[in-house]
Every structure is written in C-alpha cells, then in structure tokens.
Amino acid sequence: MSTAKISLRQVRKEFVVRDEGNGPARRFVALDDATLDVRPGEFLTLVGPSGCGKSTLLDLLGGLTMPTSGQILLDGRPVTGPARDRGVVFQQYALFPWRTALQNIAFGLEIARVRASERTEKARHYLELVGLSAFANRYPHELSGGMKQRVAIARSLAYDPDVLLMDEPFAALDAQTRETLQIELLRIWRATAKTIIFITHGIDEAVVLGQRVAIMTARPGRIGRVVDIPEELNSGSDDVRSLPLFGRLRHEIWTLLREDVWETQNQSVAADPVPDRSRKEPVHG
C-alpha cells in the first residue's frame, strides 16, 4: 500500500441535482466506495459505460473537485487541489486557440515562471517527442484533430508531472489516427516513465494500452474488477489485436461490462432518468 503512487480510499462523490421543472433538490451519487491503488510508472486504463462516473473520478484525481467522503492520496499525501504534479489531457484537446503549438506547450512552464529561454527549449523538446517539430508556429485551427491531441499531450508533459490523467483523449479521432496515437502514447510512456491513468469507453483501447484495466460500473459509479493485461499485449505493434489472448481478454471485459449494463437497464425502469450533467452541483467545495 505504501508503494502506491495514487491511492483511492472509499472515495464517494455526491452532486445535488434537481429533477425536471425545478423539483426538490436531491442527492445523486456519482461515485461510491471507489478504492484503487495505482503503482508508480503504471499504465492503468479505466473502462466503463457512459455515465458511470469516469469523468467525475478524473476531476477528483486532478484536484478540480473534492470528494464528499473518502481519500485520494498522491505519494501518500491527500490531494488538495490542482497542481503540476498531475497533467490532464482532455478529449476536446482544450488547446488555447490564440497560442501556437509551441506557445501552448510552454503554457504550464509560463505558469510555473520558468525563464523564457528554458521554456522554449523544453517546449521544443516535447514538440519533437510528439513528432510535430515542423508545426511549432501553427495555431490550433491549422492543425488536424490528431495533431491537436499530440500538442495537448506534449503540453501536459512539458512541466514534467509524475502522473498523466487522460480523459478519453482519442475518442474524437478517426480509427486510423486513434491507433497511431495509441502506439505513440505507449512509446512516450516508455520514454518518460510516467504513471498514466487513461479513461476510455473502448474495450480494445483499454486492453491495448493498459497494464491493468479497471472496470467501472454505473449508478452508483464503482470500481469493479481489475483485470491484469499480459505485457505482450502492450507492445504497441499492429497485430496484438489478432492474438487469441487479446480476444479472450476483450471478451472477458465485455462480459463484465454487459452484466452491469443489463443490471442498470433493469434498475432504470423503476428509477429516475439519468440526471443532466449540467445541472449537477457539487455538495462540498
């Protein structure tokens, strides 16, 4: 336990929600009793159906929101807010459109008040790491989706966080670009030895990338089984998807997820519809 990079201890997150037409406020449990240890340098993928609290969990890990109860420990110390020891990569890139690729990557370093010359040097290094040296002075609108996500990854790596939190980063990309970036990410992970928590709703992606796959269940969001993935599947080569082992693990995870989806659907006949995310308000700051 003491060797864990990140430790979730019975983490619970509630939101205050209102039903349609200004009904009475009630509590919605987005995440319940989430317990998980992530080893230093591990690549962990979190897979689950939509609305299972994946993004809630990522916001908690990023320190953007605080748990209602339970603890989130980073190197044994509770997370109290956002900090540069964790980098977050979002599905929608979240690049600053008024900054070039290079200036975007330098943003975190600017925030950290790193000297200008050092900033540029580091930003160039990470731009090279993601293979975009030729595009340093392009604005985001001049880059393709795949390139934007590379810039976003480089931006999160540039201030050298220990942990990289990725919230469905490749979900908006086409299949070909996605596979290329998966291979790239594995390469970057090996080159930088970061601890990565990668959220996805794609089972294939979870198996190809993760050393372990944590399966989340919905309503309330919980972390269920954690499946170990043999190293040969994380090789980043093209043909891992054709291995029988890949098919077996994929099927196993799929079965676990399906059971949960069935249960959820049966429950939802009686329960209220899933509340609108935009109307959620955190219970505690």
Binding site: P82, V88, F90, A94, W98, F107, G108, I111
Partner: peptide
Amino acid sequence: PLLIKSGRTMGATPVQLFTRVILPAAS
C-alpha cells in the same frame, strides 16, 4: 469553461487564469 479547467489543471492562479486565459479568449 474547458479552457479555464485546462488552465487550472496546470496550476494557474486566479490572476494568471484571468490574464492568460480569460482575457485572450474574450478579446
């Protein structure tokens, strides 16, 4: 809001968020 969130995850202070994210985005 995603840009503000993104700025926050990089540890931007409220003043830095204002001058480096909100102001250019609003211009």
